[in-house]
Simulated scan of single mutants.
Amino acid sequence: MVTYLKHMGKYTHNQIKSKSFEEIQKLYEREQKWINDFVPIDSEVVKDSRKGKAEGSRRKTFARKRTGEKLDDESVKRQKIEDDDEKEALRVYLDIISGDNESINVESLATKYLIVDWKTHALSEDKMYYEIIRGDGSTKSYKIFIEMLDDFDRQDVLDLYRLVKERFETASPEGYDRLLWGDLITIFEPSEDDDIWKTQQDYTLIRWRLFDSCGVHVLLMDTGIAIHMLIEKTCPFIQAML
């Protein structure tokens, strides 16, 4: 239904992504009805109707009967052509998707499963990553926190912050966990006493990026440091950085 609405109803991804299944179904049924009810201006039914007005009542009645029969045949043929065209278009889209070597995460329009857990994996000193686990059992791996922001919305960031904070409520993070902990604390609990803010004068900003899906800014420095911030929070910047 989503594919049909995008390519036949000209709906955009942003118009569809926040709608529930029931809303998508109603839009789909409305588009189908509009197309099924459409009659071209040069169709036989219009021609026969105009011709019938110029004829006598006897010939008009006969013409209407013949027109009705022809309309039924034309409607069936037209519907079959439309169905065949639609099936062919969908087949092409499916062929394109199935032939793609990139992995595709299929997600319900009505439900996005919450993050329920996370794990840190260290295969070697240079090969470490985070594994994000969602409520439906699906997982995805990320090397650093900024990679997560491409997929996350605001709720994902909140869930991960809560889980990480609960785990280290009575223990101190170590190793690769300290990086994730530091990024999340900078976002939700910015403090002038943190080293990342105390040493701002040593940084040179080389890039700024906004992840609008989750409302997080990221400042990338020449030292390789990334500072993450919520768009609504005020952070303790020095004047030179501002």
Results as ranks from 00 to 15, higher is better:
1 M>E: 08
7 H>V: 04
7 H>R: 05
10 K>W: 08
10 K>I: 04
10 K>R: 13
10 K>V: 00
12 T>A: 12
15 Q>L: 07
15 Q>R: 02
17 K>S: 00
18 S>E: 05
19 K>R: 11
24 I>K: 06
24 I>C: 08
25 Q>C: 12
29 E>Y: 13
30 R>L: 15
30 R>E: 15
31 E>W: 06
31 E>G: 01
35 I>N: 10
36 N>K: 15
36 N>V: 11
37 D>E: 15
38 F>S: 12
42 D>W: 08
43 S>L: 04
47 K>S: 14
47 K>D: 00
49 S>W: 08
51 K>N: 07
51 K>H: 14
57 S>N: 02
58 R>K: 07
61 T>F: 12
68 G>D: 02
68 G>C: 00
68 G>T: 05
69 E>R: 14
69 E>G: 15
70 K>H: 10
72 D>T: 14
74 E>C: 09
74 E>W: 02
74 E>T: 03
75 S>P: 04
75 S>Y: 14
76 V>Y: 13
81 I>Y: 11
82 E>I: 11
83 D>I: 10
85 D>G: 06
85 D>A: 15
86 E>I: 01
87 K>P: 01
90 L>C: 02
92 V>P: 04
92 V>C: 13
93 Y>F: 10
93 Y>M: 06
94 L>M: 10
94 L>Q: 12
94 L>H: 12
94 L>A: 06
96 I>A: 11
99 G>Q: 14
100 D>Y: 02
101 N>G: 02
102 E>N: 02
102 E>D: 13
103 S>Y: 04
105 N>L: 04
105 N>F: 13
106 V>C: 10
106 V>H: 06
109 L>V: 13
110 A>W: 13
112 K>Q: 04
114 L>P: 01
114 L>K: 14
116 V>Q: 09
117 D>H: 02
117 D>G: 10
119 K>T: 14
119 K>C: 03
120 T>I: 12
123 L>F: 01
124 S>Y: 04
127 K>T: 03
127 K>F: 04
127 K>D: 07
134 R>V: 07
136 D>H: 07
137 G>C: 09
140 K>T: 11
141 S>F: 04
145 F>W: 10
146 I>V: 15
147 E>S: 07
148 M>P: 08
148 M>D: 03
151 D>I: 01
152 F>K: 07
152 F>M: 10
154 R>M: 08
156 D>R: 13
159 D>V: 04
160 L>I: 03
160 L>Q: 05
160 L>K: 05
165 K>I: 10
168 F>M: 12
169 E>K: 09
169 E>Y: 01
170 T>L: 13
171 A>Q: 15
177 D>H: 09
177 D>T: 02
180 L>Y: 01
181 W>D: 05
187 I>N: 05
187 I>Q: 06
189 E>Y: 08
191 S>N: 13
193 D>K: 06
193 D>S: 13
196 I>N: 00
199 T>N: 03
201 Q>F: 09
202 D>Q: 12
202 D>E: 09
203 Y>C: 03
203 Y>V: 08
204 T>V: 14
204 T>I: 09
205 L>W: 06
210 L>M: 07
210 L>V: 00
212 D>S: 10
214 C>G: 03
215 G>C: 08
216 V>M: 00
217 H>R: 02
217 H>T: 05
219 L>I: 15
220 L>P: 00
220 L>F: 11
221 M>L: 00
222 D>P: 03
222 D>L: 02
224 G>F: 11
224 G>M: 14
226 A>I: 08
229 M>R: 11
230 L>A: 03
230 L>V: 00
233 K>H: 11
236 P>T: 05
239 Q>C: 11
